[in-house]
Amino acid sequence: MPDGAPATIEVDIIINGKAQTFRVDPAEVALDTLRDAGLASVKRGCDEGDCGSCSILVDGQLMRACLLYTGQLHGREITTVEGLGTARQPHPIQRAFVEAGAVQCGYCTPGMVLATSALLDSCPSPTDEQIRQGLDGNLCRCTGYVKIVDAVRQAAAELRSGRDRSGGDR
């Protein structure tokens, strides 16, 4: 490598089911890479791990895009809200957030929805205490959280009944 030329690395990531290769500065943080790739749901709030607005799922685990170098995601599968549902066909968690009135300015919502998705994956019938724990790292400056907890409860019930209808495997 000639002196002074900025290094780039190739990082292979499966994003919402689609394999992609990124050429980035090895010092780049995942939050920047994902936003540059057009994933606007991954939001920059605090940039230091405190607010949860940059939440993503990495191999199904809730993580913070601002606390990861892009290079750490090589070979991993990530999910953002764009991979859950669309405006026309919202995921049951997204529908529950709208119906419960859990969205005001909406800045925290993608993170809240992903935290809910991770929680309900491992704990389909959470108590209110478990809901609050599952969302413990996601801050909302608008709603006061009551409606968000309502939405998670509603989404959990909806997903359970959906599984019952489809003769679910859990």
């Binding site: 949860g52 809730l62 606390l67």
Partner: peptide, 9 residues
């Protein structure tokens, strides 16, 4: 230690 997402990492 920290929040759920921090502990996952």
């Amino acid at each position: 230690a920290g929040s759920t997402a921090v502990r996952n990492a």
